[in-house]
Design a protein around this nucleic acid. Structure first.
Length: 243
DNA sequence: GCGACAG
DNA sequence: ATCTTGTCGC
């Protein structure tokens, strides 16, 4: 048996063991899109869509902004269901991955994870700006971050990435199924009368019903639920400060 | 080959 | 996401 002159081994071939996905995958600079997708395929089996284990007492929201060449993530912690802000943490990193539809977690994930880890208390559930399983590989940023943090997460995106749906009613609370490849992967939810609907899908350790209930119970008069809304506002304030 | 395409 | 003032609507 003749062996190839070169034992070419791509980063995708030498996939890290689960515990090392974060260090070797997500934070690896120079990662290619193909390698990122390989990591997603290897990680997707770890995503668990199950009912939330217990009623949450602490809910967090995270989002990111991009001050030239950097990723600035903010994580906000709230009591639930009161929704009182009790902590806020940030993380700044060099931008190491471009925006590629379907690979958002490799661009924002690292910073978001760092910010969440800095919170003084561990959230019972985390809401992220993006998709959960409503994703081409069933592992959007919410699922990806949830697996890496081993924490319940909910994806709450402002627009659609994949799937078909019927426009939900115009009243707050109206919802319709988001289907993709014959599966219901999420809910198109009207969080406020007359506004554009939100695309809610389970990230990790939560199910579709939990996701919708949480987003709705966290929405206080605005389109976005408080955790994500406040994190987004803060993200922009901090970015402005930098420039 | 032609669209679609989280943030 | 980001570049950007005023402006239409509830």
């Amino acid at each position: 048996m003749t062996q190839p002159a070169k034992n070419k081994k791509t980063k995708a071939d030498s996939l890290p063991v689960p515990e090392e996905f974060f260090l070797q995958g997500v934070e690896a600079p120079g990662l290619t899109a193909a390698e990122a997708r390989a990591i997603q395929r290897a990680m997707k089996d770890r995503v668990r869509v199950v009912p939330l284990e217990a009623k949450p007492r602490l809910v967090a929201g995270a989002d990111a902004a991009f001050p030239d060449g950097e990723v600035l993530a903010v994580a906000c912690l709230f009591t639930y269901p009161e929704l009182e802000l009790v902590d806020m943490q940030t993380a700044v990193m060099k931008l190491a991955f471009p925006y590629v539809p379907g690979l958002l977690s490799f661009r924002e994930g690292p910073a978001v994870i760092r910010a969440v880890r800095k919170l003084k208390e561990r959230p019972d559930v985390l809401i992220l700006d993006g998709q959960g399983i409503a994703h081409p590989q069933m592992i959007g940023i919410a699922s990806h971050v949830g697996v890496l943090l081993d924490m319940p997460t909910v994806g709450c995106a402002k627009s659609r990435l994949v799937g078909e749906f019927l426009e939900p009613g115009r009243q707050r609370g109206s919802a319709s199924a988001l289907e993709y490849k014959g599966q219901v992967v999420g809910t198109v939810l009207r969080s406020k009368d007359g506004v554009r609907p939100l695309f809610v899908s389970p990230g990790h350790l939560v199910d579709i019903q939990d996701s919708v209930d949480l987003v709705l119970s966290c929405s206080k008069g605005f389109r976005l639920p408080e955790p994500t809304r406040v994190a987004d506002l803060e993200t922009k304030k901090l970015k402005k400060k930098k420039s």
